[in-house]
Amino acid sequence: MEKTIAITGAGQGIGRASTLHFLDKGWRVAALDIDAAALAELVGAATPKRLMTLPCDVGSEREVAIAFEAIGSWTSKAPLAALVNNAAIANPYCGPLEDVDLADWRAWLDASLTAAFLCSRAALPLLREAERQTGEAANIVNISSTRSVMSEPESFAYAASKGGIDALTHAMAVSLGPQVRVNAVRPGWIETRDWQKESERQEVEHRETDKGQHPAGRVGTPQDIAEAVEYFLGAGFVTGQHLNVDGGMTVKMIYED
Rank of each mutant, 00 (worst) to 15 (best):
T4L: 01
I5V: 09
A6P: 13
T8V: 11
A10D: 07
A10Q: 08
T19G: 00
L23R: 04
L23C: 08
K25R: 15
G26P: 00
A31I: 02
L32I: 04
I34R: 09
A38Q: 06
A38C: 09
V43D: 03
G44C: 10
A45W: 00
A46W: 03
P48F: 09
P48D: 07
L51D: 00
T53L: 06
L54D: 04
L54N: 01
V58E: 04
G59M: 07
S60D: 10
E61F: 13
R62C: 09
E63V: 05
A65V: 14
I66F: 02
F68I: 15
A70P: 03
A70W: 06
G72Y: 07
G72W: 13
S73C: 10
W74H: 07
T75V: 13
T75P: 07
K77I: 14
P79C: 13
A81R: 14
A81Q: 14
V84C: 12
N86V: 06
A87E: 05
P92D: 09
P96H: 09
L97H: 11
V100R: 05
A103I: 14
D104N: 15
W108K: 12
A111P: 06
A111G: 08
F117N: 05
C119V: 05
R121N: 12
A123N: 12
A123W: 11
A123K: 04
L124C: 14
L126Y: 00
R128G: 01
E129G: 15
R132C: 13
Q133G: 11
T134Q: 03
A137W: 10
N139T: 05
N139V: 10
I140P: 07
I140H: 09
I140A: 01
V141M: 06
V141E: 01
V149E: 10
V149I: 13
M150H: 10
S151F: 08
E152K: 15
P153K: 06
A157S: 15
Y158T: 13
A159F: 07
A160Q: 08
S161E: 08
S161N: 10
L168G: 02
T169W: 05
A171K: 11
A171Q: 12
M172H: 12
A173D: 03
V174W: 10
V180K: 12
N183M: 15
I190V: 10
E191H: 06
R193H: 01
D194I: 15
W195S: 14
S199K: 10
E203Y: 01
E205Y: 02
E208V: 12
E208G: 08
E208N: 11
E208C: 04
T209N: 11
D210W: 09
D210N: 03
G212N: 11
H214L: 07
P215K: 04
G217Q: 00
G220H: 03
P222K: 00
A226N: 10
Y231D: 05
L233Y: 02
G234D: 02
A235M: 01
A235V: 02
G240S: 03
Q241C: 05
H242R: 12
L243C: 02
L243Y: 03
N244L: 13
V245E: 08
G248L: 05
V251G: 06
K252R: 11
K252D: 02
E256V: 10
D257S: 15
